[in-house]
Amino acid sequence: MNLQELTERLHRIRDNNDWQRFHSPKNLAMAASVEMAELVEIFQWSSEDQSRQLAPEQLAHAGQEVGDVVLYLLLLCSELGLDMDEVVRAKLADSERRFAK
């Protein structure tokens, strides 16, 4: 996954629709949270086993919501001047240091 290319494509969509004025870090964080809530809703009231065996339409819906969350996070990183690859790698390295045995 080329994060730079994805971010550029997102910026084109944003710019073509004059949405940049809405893309403050606060708004993007809230939008990502809303999309995450939509993902959580797919699993609401499911058992552990059911959550691992989604029907095809539920799985497709989950994929759409995951995509929404990731795209909003890419836009958020762009607005904050963060490199998503760097912050994810740094967090993973921290987790490995703390939790890997």
Rank of each mutant, 00 (worst) to 15 (best):
D18F: 09
M1W: 10
D85V: 01
E41Y: 13
Q53I: 05
Q4M: 02
N16G: 06
C77T: 10
G63M: 11
L92F: 15
H23F: 09
E65N: 04
D49F: 06
Y72F: 14
S78N: 08
L92W: 05
L73I: 11
T7G: 07
E41W: 08
V69T: 12
E35V: 04
L80A: 00
L74H: 06
R98A: 12
G63Q: 09
A100I: 09
F43A: 05
A32H: 01
R14H: 08
H61T: 01
S78T: 07
A90T: 14
I42R: 01
D85S: 07
T7N: 06
S46Q: 12
A60I: 03
A31Q: 01
S24P: 00
S47N: 08
L92Y: 08
W45R: 13
S47C: 08
H61N: 09
L39W: 10
A90C: 14
A62P: 03
C77S: 14
V70N: 02
H61L: 01
L74G: 05
W19V: 05
L80E: 02
H11V: 03
D94Q: 12
D68Y: 04
Q58H: 08
K91A: 15
S46A: 07
A37G: 13
Q58I: 04
E35F: 01
V34T: 11
Q20N: 15
I13M: 09
V87C: 07
Q53C: 08
I42V: 08
V66C: 06
S78L: 15
Q4W: 02
N27P: 05
A100G: 10
M36P: 00
E8C: 02
G81Q: 12
D83I: 09
S51R: 15
V34G: 11
L73G: 11
E79M: 12
R97G: 12
M84K: 04
A29L: 13
V87I: 14
H11C: 00
H11K: 02
L80G: 03
L10W: 07
R97F: 08
K91L: 11
E96F: 07
L54T: 04
H61D: 03
A62S: 06
E48G: 03
R14A: 11
V88I: 15
D15C: 05
S95K: 11
L28T: 00
H23C: 15
I42L: 02
R12Y: 07
D49W: 05
V40E: 05
N2F: 10
L74F: 14
A62C: 11
S24R: 02
A29K: 14
A55E: 12
S51W: 04
E57S: 07
P56E: 02
L28D: 00
E35N: 01
E86A: 12
D15V: 02
A62H: 03
L54G: 08
S51T: 15
R98I: 12
Q44L: 13
W19P: 02
A32W: 00
A55Q: 08
Q50W: 09
E65G: 00
A32V: 00
E86M: 12
V69P: 13
